Computed example of a mutant assay.
Amino acid sequence: MTACLRTLALQALTLCDPTQKCAQTLSLWETAGAGTLLLDPTRLIQAQAAQIPGRPAKPTLVPPKHLQRRAMNTAEGRAALIHALAHIEFNAINLALDAVWRFTDMPLDFYRDWLQVAKEEAYHFSLLRTHLQTLGFDYGDFDGHNSLWEMVEKTQSDVLARMALVPRTLEARGLDAAPPLKQKLSQAGDHAAAAILDIILRDEIGHVAIGNRWFQFLCDQRGLDIVVTFERLRQQYQAPTLRPPFNMEARKLAGFSDIELAYLNAETG
């Protein structure tokens, strides 16, 4: 029997070991590219909520306000920042795999797009973890927060809400945060980490663009206005408040329209 891509994505999602999850995600991407997997977008796949997502025992998850702040002029401070970024990327692997297995009745390109995102997030995580190890630390040595996954859980029943509030909202904040973070790392002399951020920003523009593409598709399909619908969903799901500064160049490259960018400025001005 031919294996189902969406079932295998769920299996990768439930893996707890980060190395295994990254390897399985890459293998799934390569196997899917070879055309040897069944992709059935109409099939309902059952999963045990307790197993989603698979994650290691460490890092300990705490509220964002309880995360300890460390000075960037220390090796531990830089490591804490790299760890925070790695934790975001690990969660991003999970959210992309979740989109592949969870949502039914989407075009085939939807599943291919999110499998590509999962593969690239696994690459980002591996880059950051390897660099963290050169600083004498490893993933799990610092605490982390669960805000990204919490929004994934909130939007599990509606693909429109997921596209609006995860890639277009939370991940888009990464486009805004990357330039100042890179500057901090460069000023601290960590040029290797700064170079990794260049790779992440390049790929994250594409990931947000994928979110924009499918949000537009779903709004068109349902006869909804993009700006009005986004604001409604943002309030309904209590998404984080959007705050400047915004990376307008990156957001435009990621597919935000001039109308949306003007609205963003008006709302936060």
Rank of each mutant, 00 (worst) to 15 (best):
E204D: 04
A118C: 08
Q187W: 00
A84D: 08
A86H: 09
A3Y: 07
S257N: 12
D198M: 04
V152L: 00
G174Q: 09
L28G: 08
L170N: 10
E76G: 08
V166G: 10
D190P: 05
T14K: 14
G136K: 07
A122K: 13
A32W: 11
E89L: 05
S157V: 00
L224H: 04
L135R: 08
F137L: 02
T155Y: 07
Y237N: 10
F246H: 03
K252V: 01
P167R: 07
L81W: 03
Q187E: 09
V159K: 11
F215S: 04
Y139N: 03
H66L: 00
I226N: 11
L13K: 01
L165N: 07
V152P: 00
L224D: 03
R112L: 11
E260T: 07
A178F: 09
W149N: 07
K184P: 00
A80Y: 08
I200D: 04
L108W: 10
F230W: 14
I199L: 06
A195Q: 12
A194G: 08
R129Q: 14
D158K: 00
R102H: 14
Q183M: 01
A192K: 07
P107I: 11
H131D: 06
T169N: 05
L165C: 09
L218E: 04
G136W: 12
V159H: 12
A57M: 04
M106E: 15
G140E: 07
A57Q: 10
Y123M: 13
H191M: 04
L81P: 01
L85M: 15
R55G: 01
P56Q: 00
A75N: 11
S147L: 15
Q216D: 15
H145I: 04
A50E: 09
R55I: 00
W101G: 10
T25E: 11
T19N: 03
D225Y: 08
N265L: 13
N247W: 08
A71V: 10
P53G: 02
A71M: 12
V159D: 13
T169M: 06
G269F: 01
T130S: 15
L108M: 12
T104C: 14
L175F: 01
P179Y: 03
I205N: 04
I226W: 15
L201A: 08
H124P: 05
M72T: 07
F110Q: 12
A23R: 13
F142D: 03
P244G: 03
H145K: 06
V159A: 15
A209Y: 02
F110W: 14
T134Q: 15
W149Q: 05
L37M: 05
I226F: 15
V228D: 12
Y111D: 05
Q236V: 03
A50D: 08
Q24T: 00
T169L: 05
L135T: 03
L170R: 12
P167H: 05
F217Y: 15
L115F: 13
H66S: 02
P18M: 02
E267A: 10
Q116P: 01
M151D: 04
R69H: 05
L108I: 13
A23L: 12
Q24D: 00
L67H: 07
I93K: 08
P64K: 11
A96F: 11
L85I: 15
T130R: 15
A75S: 11
S186F: 00
C219V: 02
E260I: 06
L201D: 02
Q68W: 00
E121R: 10
L15G: 04
R43H: 01
H131W: 13
L44M: 09
K21F: 14
L115P: 12
R168D: 10
Q48N: 10
T2K: 14
V152Y: 08
A92Y: 03
A57T: 04
L261G: 07
